[in-house]
Amino acid sequence: PQLADQKTLAKQIYEAYLKNFNMNKAKARTILTGKTSTPPFVIHDMETLQLAEQTLVAKMVGSAGALKDREAEVRIFHCCQCTSVETVTELTEFAKSVPGFSSLDLNDQVTLLKYGVYEALFAMLASSMNKDGLLVAYGSGFITREFLKSLRRPFSDMMEPKFQFAMKFNALELDDSDLALFVAAIICCGDRPGLVNVAHIERMQESIVQVLQHHLLANHPDDTFLFPKLLQKLADLRQLVTEHAQLVQEIKKTEDTSLHPLLQEIYRDMY
């Protein structure tokens, strides 16, 4: 009966993942490997960026909006924020579908999201990346790693650490069923600062991590060390988020850019 419970939990979490996230690894890989009828529009310089803004991301940039005359770095930073806000919204809905999450103390739910969403976001971002770039605008565009690196500092420092993480993470060859459980494990984490009902969350975490471990053994029988490798990735993600939060604070201090109120809430007093 315990095994049956585990299978049910794995299935519920995987279904919630497929339902709530607009992009997933299977979709992203189909596009990145050229198996779609229309390949993504490649953004590799200022000219192609402008073209993409006029067509793919017109809504985000607001062609007639306040950002029209701002420099490319600021416009790209703004686009990153829009995507982040959307993903945080999706992650919130996903978390609510994880069995047990909604019955947690509301303040604890907030704490789990505050500390978990960026780790989850960067883990999932890897699905949309290859060594040369990153899918954007729901997979209709592809922005090159070189172009992102060529932006002026500090904006050029934003994505390179995520690419470096993604290349190592993608080498583990997880599929969406693995990622769904991994993202759930990131969110249901008992050692986030300020949690009230730690015991309740630790019980949830334990069952999710156990399901993840069994699922990996069944889904990747040739890689017996995949589970410990993934546990290490949890620590790497925490470090990646800490560095990202510092960079965003620096940008906020030195650049004339606004930060979305939802993201401000998440970053405020984070680490």
Binding site: H78, Q81, C82, V85, V88, T89, T92, E93, K96, L106, N107, Q109, V110, L113, K114, S258, H260, P261, L262, E265, I266, R268, D269
Partner: peptide
């Protein structure tokens, strides 16, 4: 609670538009 107003909103509403 005030410090995380939008996160609270997102958790309590099924979907809420989060515009810049």
């Amino acid at each position: 609670k005030e410090k995380h107003k939008i996160l609270h909103q997102l958790l309590q509403n099924s979907t809420s538009p989060v515009d810049l």
